[in-house]
Design a protein around this nucleic acid. Structure first.
Lengths: 156, 156
DNA sequence: CGAGATTTGGCATAAATCACCTGTTTGAAA
DNA sequence: TTTCAAACAGGTGATTTATGCCAAATCTCG
């Protein structure tokens, strides 16, 4: 909703490549002096366009070798108080992303765990214990083609 | 593979919450003085545990209102030279994440675009033009429960 | 064209980064 | 257990960066 001009878009593109770039570097890249550049960044943060800054960790390197995409179906009456479902799924730290989707399933969740046995524990001790979960289908990631790629920002 | 101790894990957890936190802040949080803390961060970067730093942008706020999860099936002979498939999918900026998966599909891709008509253009002009793409199935995200959540790092 | 509002750029100061150095801890072998 | 070497934590200071302030430039309407 906020009107983003070419400077804002440029700043966001720079931060998508390297969110720890210094303000001076970003200012040079978008052809602005440091002062207004920093002011714009702070405005983007305050207005909610920028939600935060994250480190991109190599999952394999930290021992998280298994990514699974889980299609979750919920029972008919659980679909009515969807808020409780959201809260429950939000609280599971193994789920790194989760969307309510159209199609055959109700939710699609990305689950990141150490290995198959950790995934088994997650399923039996956590996901299947949630009330209202009627059916799940697991799609195992064999290989990551790309993850967390920069958004293709609409130009102004 | 590199041995990560509790300091490294603490640094990664801090950077997952705020990747622009200053080295001094991170050092305080993990109970280390700034010098060794910065040294560890640089080591994590050099060893590949840290792949980079990304800004978390609110998609709606920049006009990207539609997220679609696309299941892609490729023809039998395309499956053999999978490398070409990967390269082609990598090159599409609308795809923000893509995995080769088990199950009914061959690939699962997350596509982020402005709206339905932009998605139609993406499908007809780009994805369906790729050689070897035999079948696709689109699952539209109705609501994001969570995105880009921090990883649950194995403790040491 | 002109008044008002917004934004930019430069400056000064406080803070952070980072290379270098020193002292301590750790770990392996005798 | 003792010894030695390698690795690591912590301190210091020069350089770079962040950030508030203010005057000048730019943009926006009437």
């Amino acid at each position: 909703m906020p009107n983003l001009d070419k400077f804002d878009i440029g700043i966001l593109e720079a931060l998508q490549e390297d969110a720890r770039a210094t303000n001076v570097e970003i200012a040079e890249r978008v052809n602005l002096s440091p002062s207004p550049c920093l002011r714009r960044i702070r405005n983007l943060e305050k207005s909610g366009v920028i939600r935060g800054y994250r480190v991109d960790i190599d999952r394999k390197e930290v021992g998280l070798g298994l990514t699974v995409f889980v299609e979750i179906k919920v029972g008919q009456h659980s679909r009515e108080n969807a808020e409780a479902q959201h809260t429950a799924l939000l609280a599971l730290p193994e789920i790194t992303a989760c969307f309510m989707i159209s199609g055959t399933a109700d939710f699609l969740a990305e689950v990141v765990v150490e290995d198959l046995s950790a995934y088994e524990r997650f399923l039996t001790e956590k996901l299947l214990m949630l009330p209202g979960v009627a059916d799940i289908r697991s799609n195992f990631a064999i290989r990551a083609v790309k993850t967390g790629a920069p958004l293709k920002l609409p130009q102004r």
